[in-house]
Amino acid sequence: MRNAKLVILLAATLMLGACSKSPDVKDGWGDEPEMVTGAQDESGSSQRGLGENGVRGGEEFGGMNLDGQNVLDGTTIFFDYDSTDIKLDYEDVLMAHARYLVENPGARVRLEGHTDERGSREYNIGLGERRSQSVRRVLMLQGAQDSQIITVSFGEERPAEFGSSEDAWAKNRRVEIQY
């Protein structure tokens, strides 16, 4: 559903940008979720290289808008245990999101903060909120407007991965960027 919305949004941007490479763009979107789930190990949150991969994919398409589009869909930022620091790996992908928001003042983004299951539930709501605020700050520093960003924290209530392994925990400490 959200993806469909994004597709429409981006299609509109595409037409404005008069770009001719739409099939490639579609492929780019399809690849993205795989990149997200591809990284597995616990410390892997640091090697997820989501931004790097996304941007590299984007460069192949050339255009500025496309660059953004490829990384925009289904981005997830992963965090270390009990940490709200955004790793350097995510710099490029967050820049692309910020650029998209600046160029599309009507666009709204929802940042959903999540934690692993350890610790108390309401404290984890706080931790998830803090994570989504970290992402919000980066986007705003790059020029996105406060009114474009909604943050929601689900704490440990909506795990991406069930189970009590280090691997599952690493996948659950995240901020999902949704349009």
Partner: peptide, 10 residues
């Protein structure tokens, strides 16, 4: 209760 009132600070 706990609120963050939008600025993210609980």
């Amino acid at each position: 209760l706990t609120l963050s009132q939008g600025d993210g600070n609980l």
